[in-house]
Simulated assay, not measured.
Amino acid sequence: MNERHLYPNPVSVNEAVEHLHNGDVVGMPTETVYGLAGLASNDDAVLKIFQTKGRPRFNPLIVHCADMTMAREIAEFDPLALKVANAFWPGPLTLVLPKKANARISDLVTAGLDTVAIRLPKHPMARRLLSTLGQPVAAPSANPSGKLSPTKAQHVIDAFGGAVPVLDGGACEAGVESTILAIENNRIILLRPGNVTAEMVESEIGIKVNLPDSGKIVAPGMLKSHYAPNAKVRLNAISPNSGEAFLGFGSAAFDGPNCRNLSPKADLAEAAKNLFQYLRELDAMGVASIAVAPIPIEGIGIAINDRLARAAADRTT
């Protein structure tokens, strides 16, 4: 039986680069959530991402790049895509674009699609890692597939029992995964809401943001059941039932050890940052169900509601 190496403590950037060059996976911080990174060009490394997460192979991965030069070696940028990228990169935005025919990335990354999901993270440690590495990584969230996304290094260490080396970049600033936009035929299509809102894009770019025409899986984070704690999740709750934990927002709050408030001042950005951490804390209490207060469906609240709806979805199908 092969000895399993354990990494109970965070590693340095140089150590992470060495692991990646060796075809291993590494937990890396971004401004959104921690990612499980592997060389995007290495079939074995990408396969290890899927195997480590238990992720379905039909679910594509996001490619993280250090700069636009690296990104343009992978994807085709038309004028609209360039305008969006220049406005929001580096940052919590992923663009789904046509993959270049000679792109040096594994076919496993794109799940056989002719498009690629790509972004430039702004987290300083992620940027340092990618610049030192000198090539892009594929990196979905660093958690077992379908479970709560990690917003701290310790979440990643705990999730995989220390089997994955992790860079500690502190608590994630945004707290929910990146917005995903597809750019095609001079249209912008919102595939997954996030901190870069449709209103922000429309204001900056001057073009309406559309919803997708079908339910096909064309980008990460589109599975119906996703981002889920072990406990069931009950949405738009006014108060907890007997034995339930309660996740409040603003004035919709309760006191007690099984209660958390995403933002006492009803700040949606604060709520997004706290979402996965507080769900994780309540889930650790061993409750069967977590009741969640209503969250306004506006701005970043759209992304929060999206994650909560997927956490509450039926997990039997």
Rank of each mutant, 00 (worst) to 15 (best):
A253G: 07
E281S: 12
R57G: 00
D158H: 07
A311Q: 06
I49D: 10
A75I: 04
F160E: 10
M70C: 13
R280H: 14
L97E: 10
V25Y: 01
R128C: 06
G301K: 02
S141N: 09
I300F: 08
Q154N: 13
F160T: 12
L47N: 15
A284N: 14
T132P: 01
R234L: 09
G206W: 00
S203W: 00
G91H: 05
N22M: 05
A228Q: 07
T52S: 14
Y7N: 08
V196G: 13
P212T: 07
A312V: 11
L130N: 09
A139D: 06
C259G: 09
T179D: 12
A153M: 03
E184I: 06
I189M: 06
N143D: 10
A237L: 04
L129E: 12
P79T: 09
I205D: 08
A71K: 03
N241R: 09
E3F: 01
N236G: 07
H226R: 09
S225Q: 13
P264R: 04
R119P: 03
L167M: 13
E199G: 14
L167H: 03
K99Q: 13
D44M: 06
T52H: 03
D306Y: 15
G146Y: 02
T115R: 00
V17M: 05
P140I: 10
R315T: 14
F160V: 11
